Amino acid sequence: MGIDVWLSRTSIPAASESPTEAVIDHIDLAPSLDNWTLLEAEVANCQKCTLCTTRKNTVFGSGNQQADWMIVGEGPGQHEDEQGLPFVGNAGGLLTEMLRAISLTREDVFIANIIKCRPPNNRDPHADEIAHCSDYLYRQHQLIQPKMILALGRIAAQTLLKTNEPLAKLRGKVHTFNNSPVVVAYHPAYLLRFLPEKSKAWVDLSFALQTFTKLEGDL
Rank of each mutant, 00 (worst) to 15 (best):
R123F: 02
I24M: 14
L192A: 14
S180L: 00
S103G: 14
N122C: 11
G153W: 07
T58L: 02
K173F: 03
V72A: 02
S134N: 05
S16H: 11
T37P: 04
L29R: 10
L152D: 06
K214C: 11
A101H: 07
N64A: 01
T213P: 05
L137K: 04
I102R: 02
F60S: 01
T58I: 08
G73C: 03
R106Q: 15
R106E: 15
K169F: 08
V43A: 07
E74C: 08
P120F: 02
F60C: 11
A157Y: 01
Q47W: 03
S18N: 14
I115R: 05
V184T: 12
L167M: 04
A189F: 02
N179T: 14
G63E: 04
L94A: 08
K116S: 11
F60R: 02
H79E: 12
A131G: 12
G73L: 01
K200M: 06
H126D: 12
D128L: 10
G89R: 03
K116V: 06
V182C: 12
K173A: 14
G84T: 06
I71L: 00
P166C: 09
V5C: 07
K116N: 09
T96R: 15
I27Q: 11
L215P: 03
R139D: 08
P188D: 09
R106M: 13
I114H: 00
Q140T: 06
R154V: 03
G84M: 02
I102F: 04
I12C: 09
Y186A: 12
N164D: 14
L205G: 02
E80V: 02
S11K: 14
G77D: 01
S8H: 06
P19R: 10
L38G: 13
E17N: 13
T53K: 15
L150T: 02
R9G: 03
D34E: 15
T163F: 03
A189V: 05
L150A: 03
D108N: 15
L94P: 06
S62E: 09
E74M: 08
E21Q: 12
K200Y: 11
A151F: 07
F60I: 11
F87C: 08
C49Y: 02
Y190K: 06
G153P: 02
A41S: 10
H175C: 11
T50K: 13
G2N: 13
P120M: 06
M70G: 05
P120I: 06
Q47Y: 01
S18L: 09
L7F: 05
F207M: 10
V203A: 09
P125N: 09
G2F: 06
H141Y: 04
L38Q: 14
A30N: 05
H79R: 15
T211P: 07
W69C: 01
I144V: 15
D68S: 13
I24N: 13
P146Q: 07
A101V: 01
L170D: 03
N57M: 09
W36L: 04
K48I: 00
T10Q: 11
N35P: 04
Y186D: 15
T58P: 07
M98P: 00
T105I: 01
E42C: 08
E165W: 02
R106C: 08
D34I: 07
T54N: 11
S32E: 10
R154K: 11
N64W: 00
G172T: 05
P166M: 07
A67K: 09
R154P: 00
D124V: 05
I115K: 05
E82K: 13
L191S: 09
R139H: 10
D28K: 15
L205S: 03
P146G: 06
F177N: 03
